[in-house]
């Protein structure tokens, strides 16, 4: 079997675009999380909704910041 070159799972040229979009989505979800935290009262708050929003926001922010690092040349 001849050696097969290894490439990155995502083409390098997509990194800036991906980071912009994922960070934008992540920040929007983060904003909605904090708006929910600030506006809902202690009784009417649902823990599941908070954790879910937080998880979705952190996935988008996590991948967004990873791609931001990669796009700016910090290859982790």
């Amino acid at each position: 079997m001849a050696p097969k070159p290894i490439t990155s799972p995502v083409p390098d040229v997509w990194y800036p675009t991906l980071s912009v979009f994922m960070l934008a989505i992540g920040l929007i979800v983060t904003a909605s999380f904090f708006i929910y935290e600030a506006t809902s009262s202690r009784q009417s708050r649902s823990l599941a909704k908070e954790v879910l929003t937080g998880a979705v926001a952190s996935v988008f922010l996590g991948f967004g910041s990873l791609f931001l690092l990669l796009a700016s040349g910090v290859y982790v």
Binding site: R45, E50, G54, A55, S58, V59, L61, G62
Partner: peptide, 18 residues
Amino acid sequence: MLISGFFFLFVAGIIYMH
């Protein structure tokens, strides 16, 4: 690691509010 870092931030927020 990045995701869990952000997630801890949110969890901290949730705990603070609760």
